[in-house]
Nucleic acid binder design. Structure first.
Length: 352
DNA sequence: AAAACGTGGCC
DNA sequence: TGGCCAAGTTT
């Protein structure tokens, strides 16, 4: 096996030719000229990219940067507006922590992001991966950056057959040993690009991989089978009900969900806790009708079957729960609530 | 330390 | 079509 420094060189050479062009990125030539990316943009992109694909993030990132071009602007933003803009991207605790973090940086750190992994790690929403990534990418610090891509690449390169998550420490050690002292920002992005474009989860393109020769899994013909994972638990089914009410003037009856927990801080239709039964009292007395079709939605850890009730509400109605949103932007709803909205709207259309 | 926490694309 | 998976963090 060749040494780590030599392999890093080969990967960086590949990256110089094949680096993906992304809106939050500085390309290798710019970086070579001493240009570093805006830490705010790097931070925003890294939070959005947690457990989320580049394709899903791209438009959200562009929109956030246009609305809130710097950390001071974001810190001053209205919470509900930010949550609405995040709607659809998932893992909403990220958006809540995004605001907390922006306010700490803008309010206590003079608007300047810490330039060390340790300093970054102390901020809300920034864990070990994100701290290393921002330190490496925005400040060219030689920090190990270990995400799912890197774990997959290391599992294959070193033929680590221990299943995840048990193998995490071993993969982290291998990744740290491979991290070069030179061009750390480019290297961090290079390994992730390799994982995203060549060393992909299914049918990796080993034939054109810059690390094809030292790769032990490829030599053994088992690259596509790694990394191994522990068996997953089956997802239970939960039931729920959603009351989609529309007032005469077009306002919709919604409530803001509690800050913590599932869909925390997001808009949602009134309806009880999701569980073994779908029963809940309506938020206001009305002629609630059953559109006959339910919403099916799968979260990380359960399947949801959401029954719907829809009603036209009079101008003077006084709901016991929720409040009327005059000009609802459906895009402000998390996806499961958006599905309920779409179905309910069909039902209103049919009634008109 | 295991469980909670979203969503969309892919096969 | 249903399970797998993605630039993880928090509690």
């Amino acid at each position: 096996m060749r040494d780590a420094g030599e392999m890093a060189e080969e990967l960086l050479g590949w990256y110089d030719r094949h680096a993906r062009v992304l809106p939050w990125r500085v390309n290798p030539a710019q970086r070579a000229a001493g240009i570093l990316p805006d830490p705010y943009a790097v931070w925003l992109s890294e939070i959005m990219l947690q457990q989320t694909t580049v394709a899903a993030v791209r438009d959200y990132f562009t929109r956030f940067m246009a609305l809130w071009p710097d950390v001071a602007a974001l810190a001053a933003a209205d919470d509900a507006r930010v949550m609405g803009e995040w709607a659809g991207l998932g893992y909403y605790a990220r958006a809540r922590n995004l605001l907390k973090c922006a306010r700490v940086v803008a309010g206590e750190l003079g608007g300047v992001f810490p330039d060390s992994a340790e300093g970054l790690r102390a901020l809300p929403g920034i864990g070990p991966y994100t701290a290393g990534a921002i330190a490496a990418i925005a400040f060219d610090r030689p920090e190990p950056v270990v995400d799912g891509n890197v774990e997959r690449v290391m599992a294959r390169l070193f033929r680590i057959e221990t299943p995840l998550p048990r193998a995490k420490p071993e993969m982290r050690d291998k990744a740290a040993a491979m991290t070069p002292a030179t061009r750390p920002g480019d290297y961090a992005q290079a390994v992730m690009d390799l994982g995203a474009t060549i060393c992909t989860p299914k049918s990796p393109a080993c034939g054109i991989c810059p690390w094809r020769e030292p790769c032990q899994a490829r030599a053994a013909g088992i690259a596509a089978d790694l990394p191994a994972r522990e068996a997953k638990k089956p997802k239970p089914v939960r039931l729920g009900i959603a009351y989609v009410g529309r007032r005469e003037d077009g306002a919709w009856l919604l409530e803001t969900r509690p800050e913590s927990g599932l869909l925390g801080g997001m808009l949602g239709w009134p309806g009880g806790v999701w569980g073994d039964t779908a029963e809940d009292l309506p938020p206001v007395a009305a002629n609630w009708r059953d559109p006959g079709e339910e919403v099916r939605h799968t979260f990380t850890h359960f399947h949801l079957r959401l029954a719907l009730r829809v009603a036209d509400l009079p101008a003077d109605c006084r709901p016991v729960r929720g409040s009327f949103v005059p000009r609802l932007r459906p895009t402000d709803l998390p996806t499961v609530m958006r599905k309920a909205y779409d179905l309910a709207r069909l039902s209103f259309g049919a009634a008109e």
